[in-house]
Design a protein around this nucleic acid. Structure first.
Lengths: 204, 204
DNA sequence: ACCTGAACACCGTTCAAGT
DNA sequence: ACCTGAACACCGTTCAAGT
């Protein structure tokens, strides 16, 4: 198992991210990355053992770009900052973002993010024994929401499609017709969801 | 745009699902599917326009296998049935399940599932205007939880890895050490999460 | 009406060689 | 120490042909 070079790793990840952002995840090939940094495909293998490790590197890159906690912020401010930053990440990098769900992240970058959330929950008064569960609850939702947006899972149901389906034997759709095709202000929806989730956390 | 044959579609989807279940999503190639049903790769293209449509078919197959609502069940029974069935689906088909997040599902199968949840929320007393948002909130979490499990996002943090990371500058991890490596009874955790979410729904 | 065969333009990755 | 060139074993998909 040869030792990997690290010098040009950031440059390679930059190129990979740019390709995915511009042309989608499918266009992210070793050959394309190589061409972008002006090198032969095989040169990449000096820096990443294979494509999977390159994708892991990309996930790490996304995670480190999340904001650190600022001193003096309240726990719900810190939680909100994390949530909104995550969502913005998905909007900025819709091609790569879903990888966060696919690859279990135990890199130091990932742990740092988790630690931030743990601390916020502790400060909120969540019992120690419940903190890890609530952390998974929150991040699962936030990641899921952001991934849904990145993949178009929400927007595809707007735009008249769903209401057109409302005939037939979908009685609840029929009843809710007036509420189905709103242009879906996802900012407001996300804010409302976060408020609901915080109600779970907040000590009674 | 030639008309597709439909006769052998179920047979093809069965084969595709079996391959993904047995050898993972990466092994699901047109060539492998063809071989499994004893046909040339090009024969598949008579039934699915391309590989993407075959994957869409697979998603549809998963959705239709979710249980219908039984008459006489309370709204939280119906919601719970959906949630647990979804999670079992992810355990039975970890390779394909994450596709549910990737592909916006507006097929009749998908709408049927959504309609079931809409009705449960209506019965729970959620105001009509809030029902679509709460539906997205619930399904995003349930799908996210099940996908996390299927992808090993949760289990990878158990098994000592996380606690080993707890040194260094991760103070919250340090404090929670005793609670980090529990073998993670995910059944109990999922149940607790659902109970918390139902508290959002249940009218005060 | 349904399927096959051969071919094309790609992949990720290996190995041995070059400077 | 770092990179290249050629090759291998795959992909999805096209087109024209077979029965």
């Amino acid at each position: 198992m040869r030792k990997l070079k690290t010098e040009r790793q950031p440059e390679i990840l930059d190129a990979a991210l740019a390709i995915a952002d511009e042309h989608g995840l499918d266009a992210l090939t070793m050959r394309a990355v190589a061409e972008r940094i002006g090198v032969t495909p095989m040169a990449i293998y000096g820096y990443f053992r294979n494509k999977n490790e390159l994708l892991d590197g990309l996930v790490g890159r996304l995670l480190t770009s999340l904001p650190q906690a600022l001193p003096g912020e309240s726990w719900d401010q810190r939680l909100g900052a994390f949530a909104w930053a995550t969502r913005r990440l998905a909007r900025d990098h819709p091609g790569v973002f879903p990888l966060l769900f696919a690859r279990p992240s135990v890199t130091p970058d990932a742990v740092a993010v988790v630690d931030l959330i743990y601390q916020a929950l502790i400060d909120a008064g969540v019992p120690d024994a419940d903190v890890p569960r609530i952390e998974r609850l929150i991040t699962t939702f936030v990641l899921g929401f952001a991934t849904s947006e990145a993949n178009g899972r929400f927007s595809a149901s707007g735009d008249g499609i769903r209401s057109r389906r409302a005939r037939g034997d979908f009685p609840a759709h029929q009843r809710l017709l007036a509420h189905l095709d709103s242009p879906a202000d996802l900012d407001a929806e996300f804010a409302a969801d976060l408020a609901d989730l915080v109600r779970i956390i907040r000590p009674v």
